[in-house]
């Protein structure tokens, strides 16, 4: 009975550990993939082990005290002790020294991370937080996109963060710590990614109804892939080739879509919602909520308020055929 309980406990802890170490953690702070996130992770590791050490010592003493000084039958009053100056000095100085050991690398890291990047070659991206999606603008490359930003491997990325409405916080844990998007202020955040991949991020400052669904992807490409992506995304939208997509374009232009969304190269110039010029090349829909598949897109167009409750996109009355056509059109915007 007792052995089985221990076995169960070990199994349980095993599951916990495997959860903590193995597996895929696309949004983990413990799996850094940039210089900035690595610096923070190393600092956290140092503090973490100091804390573990303190915890082991304090808890060890505590358990010893609980066991050793438990009252036993026949015990009289213990000797009364008012205090001990040297002990007091000791347990004031010991934590102070540990804190100094933590403060030194902390301050070093602050003055690296909290300053603007010293790299003049950095790729500047403007990030504008909106309820509840992200706009990315590449001023040097003439690209405007939403919820997904591509960046090249090995080049410093210099984000300029602004908010169009309320507070948001930009957080892609594997690439950098958070930085808030504050109305009226431009904040900066920089990092240099060190491996190719798709990194998950999401808004980390409560911003209203759909705060939980304000996700994003940062995609780190090989430089050549990035060049290709950038060239394609700087172009206006291509005219759809097949008939269904063309019909979809007609539906798009004839409905409320155009009042909020822009598709460069077409009459659609709405500014309120995400730019859809190259929507078909994106991985997700509705800022990271759904994978960008035709089925999901149809669901999104049909019941946007169910997929992402509270989002500002109205549920436009569309027939099934119109939705099919729109899916074809949006998918063609690559």
């Amino acid at each position: 009975m007792r052995r089985r309980a221990i076995a169960a406990l070990v199994l349980f802890l095993g599951v916990l550990v495997s959860q903590g170490c193995g597996g895929e953690y696309p949004q983990s702070t413990l799996h850094p993939s940039s210089d900035s996130a690595t610096l923070i992770d190393q600092l956290f590791d140092q503090i973490f082990w100091w804390a573990v050490g303190v915890f082991v010592v304090v808890t060890g003493i505590l358990i010893y005290v609980f066991v050793r000084f438990r009252e036993r039958p026949g015990d009289g009053r213990p000797k009364q002790v008012h205090g001990h100056l040297l002990l007091e000095v000791g347990w004031t100085l010991a934590p102070a020294l540990i804190l100094v050991a933590i403060a030194i690398p902390t301050i070093r890291a602050i003055f690296i991370i909290d300053r603007s990047t010293p790299d003049p070659e950095a790729l500047v991206i403007e990030v504008i937080g909106k309820q509840w999606w992200w706009e990315f603008r590449y001023p040097e490359l003439g690209i405007v996109t939403a919820n997904e930003a591509h960046v090249p491997l090995g080049r410093t990325v210099d984000l300029r963060l602004r908010s169009a409405d309320v507070m948001h916080s930009f957080w892609v844990p594997r690439l950098a710590g958070k930085r808030d998007l504050v109305p009226g202020i431009e904040n900066q955040l920089w990092f240099r990614p060190d491996s190719v991949g798709v990194y998950h991020g999401q808004c980390a400052e409560f911003c209203g109804t759909a705060h939980a669904l304000m996700g994003m992807r940062l995609i780190v490409d090989e430089p050549a892939d990035f060049e290709r992506w950038a060239r394609a995304n700087a172009e206006p939208a291509s005219t759809p080739a097949d008939a269904e997509a063309r019909a979809g374009q007609g539906v798009f232009m004839a409905n409320a879509c155009v009042s909020c969304h822009a598709v460069r190269g077409t009459p659609a110039e709405g500014q309120f919602g995400p730019d859809l010029t190259h929507f078909g090349s994106r991985l997700t829909i509705a800022s990271g909520v759904l994978d960008n598949t035709p089925g999901n897109l149809a669901r999104w167009l049909d019941s946007t308020q169910h997929v992402k409750p509270g989002n500002p996109m109205p549920e436009v009355e569309l027939s099934d055929a119109q939705i099919r056509q729109l899916v074809a059109y949006l998918g063609s915007l690559r």
Binding site: L43, A51, F55, T59, T106, K178
Partner: peptide, 24 residues
């Protein structure tokens, strides 16, 4: 015992860079 745990995790985010990953 438990306040010690809470206090130690507090020390972890007293360090601003570490806190940038932990806050919120």
């Amino acid at each position: 015992a438990t306040f010690t745990i809470g206090g130690l995790s507090g020390v972890m985010h007293s360090s601003p860079p570490a806190d940038l990953q932990q806050t919120d």
